[in-house]
């Protein structure tokens, strides 16, 4: 029962990492797109491709938080009392990102667009860094069961920084793959396709380098996690690497339907690897899922919520993505 809730929670984390991650990564490319003239084409593509879907993608974060605090209340309190700094920064980053993006589209003057655009882009990098740091802190067991862990060194440590940097580059990679495919289909813009394909490749290489470095970092800093990842989680990590490379290859081969699912699979499996490596613990090796779990009756509510989500939300989301991919949702008024 508790394990089922763990799966439900991790499904949310994966969905947020894949869908939300691509939106954050788009912000990274927005930030690095250059001056107002040079950057306007990629920025326009970013606006068009994340506009109709980012609200829905963002909701996965809420889903993760509510499942965590309902299913495993003491773990939630332990995390918030230890990691309140990255959580607070991420929360403010989310506000700035959402409203910065919103207002940029409405403002017409370049100076205003620049200000709101910078807010959107900077917070799109800051927020995933914080989330990655949080994941690193949790994974390396630096959140005490009773909470109140070290506010800075719990996440600003080798594993936390690795998590943060990895989150940023993975988001950038995902977004570049998504945008590059979107440029081919449905928008049919060869120059932008190449523009984002180059960036997808660069980001893919960056992810590879960070992962190589991560091997040493985790080996030294979080030996238990390292051991679990390289034994129980190894198969998932291999699938992840293979899918990540295949995504880049299919992008090059101009197979517009393949890169997105492959890149998503790469991210999903690496997150699942983290989950598998951590099992059966929620925090380090000191708080297990069972110890942190709410009473069964509450967990049943969560199961019901998850089933409802599968029945109602999954098809609605699928419809949203399909219509968006067919360019049915960028109408003129």
């Amino acid at each position: 029962m508790t394990d089922a809730i763990g799966v439900i929670l991790f499904t949310g984390v994966i969905a947020y990492a894949v869908f939300g991650g691509a939106d954050f990564g788009a912000g990274f490319w927005d930030l690095t797109a250059g001056g107002a003239v040079r950057g306007s084409a990629p920025r326009s593509l970013i606006d068009r491709s994340i506009g109709p879907v980012w609200e829905a993608n963002h909701t996965w974060l809420i889903y993760c938080l509510v499942v965590l605090w309902t299913g495993f209340p003491p773990a939630f309190a332990a995390i918030t009392t230890t990691l309140y700094i990255p959580l607070g920064l991420a929360a403010l980053g989310i506000v700035l990102r959402g409203s910065g993006f919103a207002f940029r589209k409405v403002t017409l003057r370049t100076a205003q667009q620049r200000l709101t655009g910078v807010l959107f882009a900077v917070s799109s990098v800051l927020t995933p860094f914080c989330f990655g740091g949080i994941a690193g802190a949790v994974a390396s067991g630096r959140v005490p069961s009773a909470g109140g862990g070290a506010p800075l060194s719990s996440w600003l440590n080798p594993t936390g920084v690795l998590g943060g940097v990895l989150a940023v580059v993975v988001c950038a990679y995902l977004a570049a793959v998504f945008l590059s495919s979107a440029a081919t289909h449905p928008y049919r813009d060869e120059a932008l396709h190449l523009y984002f394909r180059r960036r997808a490749l660069a980001a893919g290489i960056a992810v590879g380098i960070v992962c190589m470095a991560g091997v040493f970092v985790l080996h030294a800093d979080a030996p238990r996690l390292f051991h679990q990842l390289t034994t129980r989680g190894l198969a998932l990590l291999i699938v992840s690497a293979a899918a990540g490379l295949a995504a880049l290859a299919t992008l090059r081969a101009r197979r517009p339907r393949l890169p997105r699912p492959l890149a998503s699979l790469a991210v999903a499996t690496v997150i699942a690897g983290w989950g598998v490596a951590q099992y059966p613990y929620l925090l380090g090796t000191h708080l297990s899922l069972t110890q942190a779990a709410a009473p069964d009756s509450t967990l049943w509510v969560l199961v019901a919520v998850a089933c409802t989500a599968a029945v109602l939300i999954a098809p609605s989301l699928a419809a949203l993505y399909v219509l968006h991919e067919r360019d049915r949702l960028t109408s003129s008024a």
Partner: peptide
């Protein structure tokens, strides 16, 4: 949240479903 999340928390999980639907259909 730590002490009462098991009771106080789950209405928000139900709210999450509704908000999800709202966001999707709003789009």
């Amino acid at each position: 949240m730590g002490q009462y999340g098991a009771a106080f928390g789950f209405p928000f999980a139900i709210e999450g479903i509704f908000f999800f639907l709202e966001a999707i259909f709003m789009s």
